[in-house]
Write a protein that binds this DNA or RNA. Structure first.
Length: 422
RNA sequence: GGAGAGGUGGCCGAGCGGCUGAAGGCACCGGUUUGCUAAACCGGCGUAGUGGUAAUACCGCUACCGAGGGUUCGAAUCCCUCCCUCUCCGCCA
C-alpha cells in the first residue's frame, strides 16, 4: 500500500495514476477524509489516555479512602469515554485500510499508458520454427507421446488439473533443476517454501485471500490458504524484520507449487496446460534498497531471458502497460514464448518491481546511512513456470515423426536423453 | 492429539498489579587512554503514531513486553481465546 502522507502530499499525481491504471474502485479522496477523521480521533483518544494515566498516578501508594473515592469515580468515567471513542477509531481505521488497499502503486515514468494491447515490445529473441509438416499442439503431443493425462485428472480433481507422465514428469523435474541451477549461479539462495500460508501474509503481498473473486483456495477449518506463488512465502519470510543495509540486496530463489482458482476465467484457455489450477514454479524474489531496485529488476529480466534462451524457445520481451499492472507493481516485464498452437506468443514469465508497496504492509525495513529505518523495495520474477514451459518446449521442438527434441540445457537433468518418443 | 514449560528491545536475560519503555550483559555508535592491536573508562543507543516546527533536527504526548479480547481507577505483570517454541507421550511419511 501507499503511505497516506504521500497520498496527501501528491494527491493530483495519485489521482492521475489511478486513472492511468484504470483502477475503478480506488478513491484517494476517501482515503484522505478517513485519515483526517482518524487523526481527530487519535488526538481525542490520546488526550483521554493521558488524563487516565495522570489520574491513576495520583493513586500510587496508600491513600485515605476519601481521597481515593473521587479519583476512582473519575477513572471510571474516563474508561467509558475512552471505550466508545476507541471503537469508533477502530472502525475508521478498518475503513481507511480498505480504501488504502484499493490505491495502486505509483508507476515508473517509462511505462506505456493503456491496456493489454498497449504493451510495448522491447525485443525478440530466437527464430520462429518453420515446420514442413502440420505441427501439433501440446495436447495432441501429450496424448500421443503418453505424457499428459487430463481426463483422469478431471475425474479426480476437476477440470484444469492434469497428470504429467513419463518424460513429462521428468521434464518438470529437469526444468526445476535447471532453473534452480541458473538462479543459484546468480546468487539467489535456493529455497523450498511452504505451499500454504496465512491469509494476512497473502493480503500483505497484494492478494485478495477472501471474498467472491478470490484467486486463491482457502482451507476449510484452518486459517490458511494455498499459495498462488512462492512470492507470497518468500516475501513473507522477512515480515516485521529490520535488516542491515549491508545485507541488501537479499536474493532468494524459491520452488513451490502454485494454486489458483482462476475465478472469472471460465471458458478462456479452458483446454490444455496454459491455464491450470495447480502448477510448479521456481520464483526469484529480492529485497533491495530503493537505489538498487531498478538494477535488480533488469537483472531478473536478464536471468529470465537466459533461461528461455537456454530452452531454445523463441520469445519476445514486453513491458506491461499501465492498465495491465497489478496493484503492487511499479513496473513489469513479461517474457512471452512462441506457442505454435496459438500461432502467437504466450506469457511464460513476469518480473515486477513493487518498490515499497509490499514492504510497507509487510513491515520490512532497513537502516539507511542516516541510521533511519526505511522500507525496502521488493521484486519478484518467474524463473520457470513449469506447464507453460512444457507447452513451449513440446510445441517448438516437435519433429516430423511426432517426437520431441529435448533442449540441450535440460539434458544433464534427464540422463542425457535427447528426445521424447521414437 | 494428550501432559508440562515458555514467548520481554538487534541478541541474551531480569521483572510477575502503580517506583518499568522496561534492570543487567552482549553487540553497535561517539569520546578518553594507547607505539599498534586488545583491554579499561565515560557517554549514547528500540519502533511507530500524533502535536509543536520549514524540518526525516529537537521537544512533548500516546501506544507497543507473541496476537486478540477481558478484569482493574491503573496490566509486561491477573483471567480467557488463539498462534508459536521447547520437553515428554501417542500417532505418522
Amino acid at each position: 500500500m501507499l503511505d497516506v502522507k504521500f497520498i496527501r502530499e501528491n494527491l493530483k499525481a495519485v489521482k492521475e495514476n489511478v486513472h492511468a491504471r484504470s483502477v475503478g474502485n480506488a478513491d484517494p479522496d476517501a482515503v484522505l477524509s478517513l485519515n483526517q477523521r482518524r487523526v481527530e480521533l487519535i488526538q481525542q483518544v490520546e488526550g483521554l489516555r493521558k488524563e487516565r494515566n495522570e489520574n491513576a498516578q495520583k493513586m500510587k501508594g496508600q491513600r485515605p479512602q476519601e481521597e481515593r473515592a473521587p479519583l476512582i469515580a473519575r477513572g471510571k468515567e474516563l474508561k467509558e469515554e475512552l471505550a466508545s471513542l476507541e471503537v469508533e477509531l477502530g472502525t475508521v481505521e478498518n475503513d481507511l485500510n480498505r480504501e488504502l488497499k484499493n490505491i495502486p502503486n505509483m508507476t515508473h515514468p517509462d511505462v506505456p499508458i493503456g491496456g493489454e494491447e498497449d504493451a510495448k515490445e522491447l525485443e525478440r529473441m530466437g527464430k520462429l520454427p518453420e515446420f514442413d509438416f502440420e505441427p501439433k499442439d501440446h495436447l495432441a503431443l501429450g496424448k500421443e507421446l503418453d505424457l499428459i493425462d487430463f481426463e483422469s485428472a478431471a475425474d479426480l480433481s476437476g477440470s484444469r488439473f492434469y497428470f504429467l507422465k513419463n518424460e513429462a514428469a521428468l521434464l518438470e523435474l529437469a526444468l526445476i533443476n535447471y532453473a534452480m541451477t541458473v538462479t543459484t549461479r546468480y546468487g539467489y539462495a535456493p529455497h523450498l517454501t511452504p505451499d500454504l500460508a496465512r491469509p494476512a501474509i497473502l493480503e500483505a503481498i497484494g492478494f485478495n485471500p477472501r471474498g467472491e473473486e478470490t484467486q486463491v483456495y482457502n482451507v476449510e477449518g484452518h486459517d490458511l490458504c494455498l499459495i498462488g506463488t512462492a512470492e507470497i512465502t518468500l516475501g513473507g519470510m522477512l515480515a516485521g524484520k529490520i535488516v542491515r543495509k549491508e545485507e541488501l540486496p537479499i536474493r532468494l530463489g524459491g520452488f513451490s507449487h502454485c494454486f489458483r482458482t482462476e475465478a472469472g476465467t471460465h471458458g478462456r484457455e479452458s483446454r490444455g496446460l496454459y491455464r491450470v489450477h495447480q502448477f510448479s514454479k521456481v520464483e526469484m524474489f529480492a529485497f533491495a534498497t530503493p537505489e538498487g531496485s531498478e538494477e535488480l529488476h533488469t537483472e531478473m529480466l536478464e536471468i529470465e531471458k537466459e533461461i528461455y534462451n537456454g530452452l531454445e524457445v523463441p520469445f519476445r520481451v514486453v513491458e506491461t502497460a499501465t492498465g495491465d499492472l497489478g496493484a503492487p507493481a511499479y513496473r513489469k516485464f513479461d517474457i512471452e514464448a512462441w506457442m505454435p498452437s496459438r500461432n502467437n506468443y504466450g506469457e511464460v514469465t513476469s518480473t515486477s518491481n513493487c518498490t515499497e508497496y509490499q514492504s510497507r504492509k509487510l513491515n520490512i525495513r532497513y537502516r539507511n546511512d542516516e541510521n533511519q529505518t526505511q522500507f525496502v523495495h521488493t521484486l519478484n520474477g518467474t524463473a520457470v513456470a513449469v506447464p507453460r514451459a512444457i507447452i513451449a518446449i513440446l510445441e517448438n521442438h516437435q519433429n516430423p515423426d511426432g517426437s520431441v527434441t529435448i533442449p540441450k540445457a535440460l539434458r544433464p537433468f534427464m540422463g542425457e536423453r535427447e528426445r521424447i518418443g521414437k
